[in-house]
Design a protein around this nucleic acid. Structure first.
Length: 97
DNA sequence: TACATTTGACCTTT
DNA sequence: AAAGGTCAAATGTA
């Protein structure tokens, strides 16, 4: 669990909502071999697709809690302005097979 | 026994 | 409301 819990995920769960489950092992087909280590966290049927969509995240999402930040400031107006870029990493994920 | 998957519930977005 | 995205208990696996 991450050190700072997000606002949701905290309450509910109080009286037996996400409780009883049954299990059935379904085999997954061999996934992608890029340099990342992925952990599956979900699977959904998408409306007009024949195959489900799988959701993965980096395995180290919770370990990599480095609190690094940085600030930048534009120095003068003649420069091209610097735009902050959100660090979001996608896996190019087309489930076409 | 620690870590990954499975899977419906829950949350967000459309 | 429906579709899409995430959570987390139960379960599997090494």
């Amino acid at each position: 669990m991450s050190p700072v819990p997000s606002p949701h995920q905290s309450h509910h769960l109080g009286h037996g909502s996400r409780k009883e489950k049954r299990m059935r092992k379904v085999d997954t087909f061999a996934p992608h071999n890029d340099g990342h280590q992925w952990r599956k966290y979900g699977e959904k049927k998408i409306n007009n697709c024949n195959f489900p969509r799988y959701y993965y995240r980096c395995t180290y999402k919770d370990n990599m809690n480095c609190p690094a930040t940085k600030q930048i400031q534009q120095k003068d107006y003649s420069d091209p302005p610097l735009i902050p870029v959100a660090d979001r990493i996608w896996e190019s994920s087309l489930h076409l097979f």
